[in-house]
Amino acid sequence: MSAERPRRGAGAVLRRIPPVLAMVLGLIGLWYLAVIPMNVQEVLTRAERAGVEVSPPSAVERRDMGNWALVVRNPGTLGESWSLDRPRLPAPHQVLTELYESTVDEELNGRRGIVRSGSLSNRGLVYHAMVTLNATFVGFLIGTGLGILLAVGIVHSRVMDMSVMPWAIVSQTIPIVALAPMIIVVLYSIGIQGLLPKAVISAYLSFFPVVVGMVKGLRAPGPMQMDLMRTYSAPKGTVFWKLRLPSSVPYLFASLKIAIAASLVGAIVGELPVQQGGLGARMLAGSYYGQTAQIWAALLMAAALAAVLVWAIGRIEARTLRRMGMAQ
């Protein structure tokens, strides 16, 4: 039976790919289509400058018209839609080109790239991604560690449970990121800067999901399992190590996935107020200078990081649960 499983699993994955692929292709198609109306104003202005007749000829009139109407009235002059320098919406291939240029190309061929200078280029996306990733990791570790500790305290102390738990739950309903700029600036003003302030925000964001998830997990053992421990007259410590902790593992991983994603958001938002590198700084710079492709590339990089981080935790989860005999 168990020998068959991988084959079936692979089959299931293979069956899932075509529809997902179709959706992704469909979305990319829509993206290419959306580029036309999004950039039509700029395209027509450039065409006009190049001496092509545009309808309507006045830029003011054009500004007041709907983008689709302009597209319909100027079907012949839209060739530049997908190759503008500073488009409102860059085409997918432009974003990929930017992504390539700011990662592989920058590092291999750039003056400050890793090949020539021996260190990651601070103009390249890899450098900024690493900056963000470091803060994410440090914050995630701090937040998760403290979260687990608090959860253990809450489960074992009725006072802590009743005093702290309601606040932990309430804190999940408030937009904690609003604190981010203040934390950065205040820490900066007392001389703490660089990675730590961002990590503090990440830690703060990942802390509460872990507390709530872990408390749930540590309380997961049913009355029968707890009674069994009582019949052995097991001390609290034994109950914790042999029953509560193992039962909490699935819950822990579920909240770790939320926590790592939240940490990443925290680090990115933490990079906004102080321009010292990182994906958040890169996005803000892009938005200041109208470099849309740069924003999109940073966004894709952030998405990829999030996907990889969540995936990695998912893998560790699957392995751990399998070794603990909780999953196949």
Binding site: S287, L299, A303
Partner: peptide, 10 residues
């Protein structure tokens, strides 16, 4: 699971 806040500047 993605940091969609990142679309804010766009």
């Amino acid at each position: 699971a993605l940091p969609i806040v990142g679309t804010a500047p766009i």
